[in-house]
């Protein structure tokens, strides 16, 4: 008898273990749901982990207000099918209440303001653990992230003082006011995510598949023309055949030229890609340690 299981099944089992451990070790966990493929896979795994019961925690969407309409439609349908509770932390509300000041200029992004809305949302709901879809292969600072990542009372990450994680024993103990970020997909790569989506036939927003769209190029990144991202006079608008490798706020999500319109062709594209998926993220291009700096402040 062969008692080996494939790497995808091992990753699935590990993620389910982390999700159950989070439900068991914390009083009030929440799952951060962006409508992107990683958080969709994470929510799917959560459904598996607690079936036939409903998820023992709600989903939290940090809404920058700059969404692709496709993402919002998908979000509402997905949550309804899942039968889960949705909580929205709104960046617009934070701006309206004067808690943050919006960046100005044509390159303005609400990406950094998400951190404030997120921390507010966590505090308001008194959540003590936030499940995130971050993966260690995404970015070099994330490569040093733990499954159970401790945050102080200000939501900050201290990369030099992280708890060691051994075997599959996780220590989620904390002082009052502190919380944890938990990353069940830590060991997954972009390829694993796509293969798993195919294996499990998970439905995705159509932004991930090739389509024609009006775009313009800014700082080497292909941006979609949306309500929130308008070209300047010197930026020419062109109809392009594109898809999105990651889906975030419209102001910081770049598109990639692609004709991949189904899972098989996307998998082939990922296999031969020579650019990381975050290579299309304008927010990471701001400096060499942009991600580490944002994470220290409490970013995902």
């Amino acid at each position: 008898m062969d008692y080996r299981i494939t790497h995808l099944k091992q990753l699935e089992s590990e993620a389910i273990y982390i999700l159950r451990e989070t439900a068991a070790q914390f009083e009030k966990p929440v799952l951060l749901f962006s409508g992107g493929k990683d958080s969709i896979v994470m929510a799917h795994l959560a459904k598996k982990a607690f079936w036939p019961a409903k998820l023992p925690f709600p989903l939290l969407h940090v809404d920058t207000g700059h969404n692709f309409p496709e993402t919002m439609e998908y979000r509402d349908r997905f949550i309804k099918d899942l039968g889960a509770e949705l909580v929205v932390a709104s960046v617009q509300d934070a701006i309206d209440q004067g808690k943050v000041v919006e960046e100005t200029g044509h390159n303005a992004s609400r990406n950094s303001l998400q951190t404030v809305a997120l921390l507010e949302g966590l505090e308001q709901g008194q959540y003590d653990a936030a499940l995130g879809g971050g993966r260690r292969d995404e970015e070099k600072a994330r490569a040093k992230e733990r499954f159970f990542s401790h945050r102080d009372a200000f939501g900050q990450w201290d990369p030099k003082n992280q708890r060691p994680e051994l075997w599959n024993i996780f220590n989620g103990k904390k002082q009052h006011g502190e919380h944890f970020r938990v990353f069940p997909l830590s060991n997954w790569t972009e390829m694993d995510i796509w293969q798993y989506i195919k294996l499990e036939a998970i439905d995705l927003p159509n932004l991930y598949f090739s389509h024609k769209r009006d775009c313009f190029v800014r700082n080497g990144v292909i941006m979609a023309v949306t309500e929130f991202t308008q070209p300047t006079d010197s930026e020419a608008v062109e109809s392009m055949q594109v898809r999105f490798r990651t889906i975030g706020d419209t102001t910081c999500t770049g598109a990639a030229l692609s004709s991949a319109d189904n899972l098989d062709t996307i998998i082939d594209e990922v296999a031969s890609a020579r650019q990381t998926e975050r290579g299309t993220r304008a927010d990471d291009k701001r400096s060499e340690t942009a991600m580490e700096d944002r994470k220290k402040q409490g970013y995902f």
Partner: peptide, 17 residues
């Protein structure tokens, strides 16, 4: 990956690849 590692040219923590 971490700023202090790049500055000092040493690896401080376990990194997963």
């Amino acid at each position: 990956g971490l700023r202090s590692e790049r500055e000092q040219g040493i690896t401080i923590d376990v990194a997963y690849r």
